[in-house]
């Protein structure tokens, strides 16, 4: 299992951030996430593998300075 925004989600092997987002609603504004505390940006979603037991927070739209 992994935790996404506080909710338990079943984990799949070789899941990436991009494939996770495809399963979620209303995430078109998600350009950045925290994967186990570390920032991951959208250009790296496809190459970022999600380990089992991960904790993920989808950050809201990035608003700049």
């Amino acid at each position: 299992m992994i935790e996404v925004d506080g909710k338990q989600v079943p984990w799949s092997e070789n899941w990436t951030m991009a494939s996770l987002l495809e399963t979620l609603d209303n995430v078109e504004f998600c350009a950045v996430a925290r994967l186990n505390g570390r920032l991951v940006s959208s250009p790296k979603f496809a190459e970022t593998i999600i380990p089992d037991n991960s904790k993920i927070q989808l950050l809201p739209l990035v608003a700049g300075g």
């Binding site: 920032l39 940006s41 959208s42 250009p43 790296k44 700049g64 300075g65």
Partner: peptide, 13 residues
């Protein structure tokens, strides 16, 4: 602070 923007801006060029 706002230093979280450094890696985010870097990753988005």
């Amino acid at each position: 602070g706002t230093t979280h923007l450094v890696p985010i801006m870097n990753d988005h060029d």
